[in-house]
Write a protein that binds this DNA or RNA. Structure first.
Length: 488
RNA sequence: GGUCCCUUCGUCUAACGGUCAGGACAGGAGAUUCUCAUUCUUCAAAUAGGGGUUCGAUUCCCCUAGGGACUACCA
């Protein structure tokens, strides 16, 4: 039987990096085993439903270049792929459970349940439903139902015995039935199913063969198995993925840094880096390989190499991957990716002018290997597109040097400009090297005042190349301004 | 509290029961370099603790400790 796996997000918030990893593992597993990857939208929580979250799911996977074989936008033989469009199906199955006495109607009000919880908390008892309606006769239940009393359908968890499931990673897990959440709700009073029911019904109907999901689902797994058993269905193979944690060992959350995919995207990460890094969180290929493209992972991914310990998310390593993939970019692609960020920072106009485009093209080779994030570009090249921000005069003065010396250096540079300016960067550099020798100062100390005068910073892209892009006139103006500053 | 899961350098991880416990990121030192970055060389850094099983445990078993998840008419 060929592999069928699904990613089943709930459109209640932005796609979390942990969820994205679950999706990726499902996707790679499907691809590497010649199977089918399905996207199913679990929108049964109408209170928390957010249409923007649905759009975010699409945007996230479009950006990552992940396509699903069945699901929204592409359809498929097991649709609809929105659970909100399948409610009749769940209701039918819930009824069935009641009929075969594996489920029951419950008329307990939220108020009663709330009070129950309070009392249990006061008495320090385990919190849980007291199975108040479990033994209601079917006749009475039907009568109250017909009378219009709101109800839910609950699962009858066996009072004794154990429930066992097998996990590809963890092994065999046994739970005592008495420890399972007492009679969880399957069908809510609004007619929508809870996760447990919808998930099981859909996974069965959609013929899902493997469930790869986060380990936080382990505790509710026996409950799911019980539902399969109640229907007389065979559960799929489970594989609970290790969780993604923050540096403090807790579930990765906002206080650790970016967590939603869109944040990473806005912060200048490239999709290749995210995919590569995330894939190595709880999975490895061999003893040394770090770099993988999406296409390679589609071939190489295997469940056997999964790790079961939770993984701490390391932003530093992700940053390294990001730099690696930015450096690997071809210039034209990188330029296109940079433009929106530069526009956002007000460095380029929108749309970009021809002049700006020409300049930017010249900039790319100068900054490419210096970028850790796409957002870094602005700080590197702002001085080529805009007037200098004010900088402290002291920055013009090399360590252990005086203002006077710095001023003289700049004046010399200005007066010899004809000899070094229009030449190609290497010739310019050669000239300046000779000049520095004749002035008996280090090349660095000759260039430092120039660098600050031109770029407004002691850290910049290569100077000679930058000056060429800046142009003769502006270069002169900036040197003159620096001399003036030093004279004041 | 209860149930379940997890445990190799700071972090991600590798190691048919036999390796000087390997790689990567981060960190230190150096080289290259007009600054920064890149690149290169190099150093430091781990099997949670205790018992077994075995000729031999990172690896198998048990206990302890620590960490985490779950305990909703949310997923």
């Amino acid at each position: 039987m060929s592999v069928r796996v699904r990613y089943a997000p709930s459109p209640t918030g932005l796609q979390h990096i942990g969820g994205v990893r679950t999706a990726l593992f499902n996707y790679f597993f499907a691809r590497s085993s010649g199977g089918t990857f399905i996207l199913r939208i679990e929108d049964t929580d109408r209170e928390r439903y957010d249409p923007r979250a649905l759009q975010d799911i699409y945007d996230t996977f479009d950006w990552l270049g992940i396509r699903w074989d069945e699901g929204p936008r592409v359809g498929g033989p097991y649709g609809p792929y929105f659970q909100s469009e399948r409610t009749a199906l769940y209701q039918k199955h819930a009824e069935k459970l009641v009929q075969i006495e594996r489920g029951y109607y419950c008329f307990c009000t939220p108020e009663r349940l709330e009070k129950l919880r309070e009392e249990q908390a006061k008495r320090k008892e385990p919190i849980g439903y007291d199975r108040h309606c479990r033994n209601l006769s079917l006749e009475e239940a039907e009568r109250r139902k017909r009378a219009g009393e709101p109800y839910v359908v609950r699962l009858k968890i066996p009072l004794e015995g154990t429930t066992t499931f097998h996990d590809r990673l963890i092994g065999t897990v046994v739970h005592a039935n008495k420890d399972i959440n007492p009679d969880p709700v399957l069908l809510k009073s609004d007619g929508y199913p809870t996760y447990h029911l919808a998930n099981v019904v859909d996974d069965h109907l959609m013929q899902i063969t493997h469930i790869l999901r986060a380990q936080e689902w382990i505790p509710s797994c026996p409950l799911h198995v019980l539902i399969y058993q109640a229907f007389g269905w065979e559960p799929p193979e489970y594989c609970h993925l290790p969780m993604v944690m923050g540096s403090d060992g807790h579930k990765l959350s906002k206080r650790h840094g970016s967590t939603s995919l869109i944040e990473f995207r806005n912060a200048g990460y490239v999709p290749e880096a995210i995919i590569n890094y995330i894939s190595l969180l709880g999975w490895s290929y061999d003893d040394s390989r770090q770099l993988f493209t999406k296409e390679e992972l589609e071939k190489l991914f295997t469940l056997d190499k999964l790790n079961k310990a939770p993984a701490v998310f390391d932003y530093k390593k992700l940053e390294w991957f990001n730099g690696v993939y930015i450096r690997e970019r071809d210039k034209e692609t990188l330029k296109k990716e940079l433009i929106p960020f530069l526009q956002r920072d007000g460095i380029l106009s929108n749309p970009i002018t021809e002049e700006e485009d020409r300049k930017l093209t010249a900039c790319i080779p100068l900054i490419q290997e210096r970028l850790k994030f796409l957002t870094d570009a602005s700080q590197w090249i702002r001085f080529l597109f805009q007037d200098l921000l004010p900088y402290p005069v002291e920055a013009l003065v090399p360590k252990k040097g005086s203002r006077e010396e710095a001023r003289k250096t700049l004046e010399t540079l200005l007066s010899t400009m004809d000899q070094w300016f229009p030449k190609d960067p290497h010739q310019s550099e050669e000239f300046l090297r000779t000049l520095s020798e004749s002035l008996n100062i280090k090349l660095g100390n000759l260039l430092m005042p120039l660098r600050v005068a031109i770029t407004g910073s002691s850290v910049s892209p290569p100077l000679m190349e930058s000056i060429q892009i800046l142009g003769r006139e502006e270069t002169m103006k900036r040197i003159q301004r620096a001399i003036q500053l030093l004279s004041e």
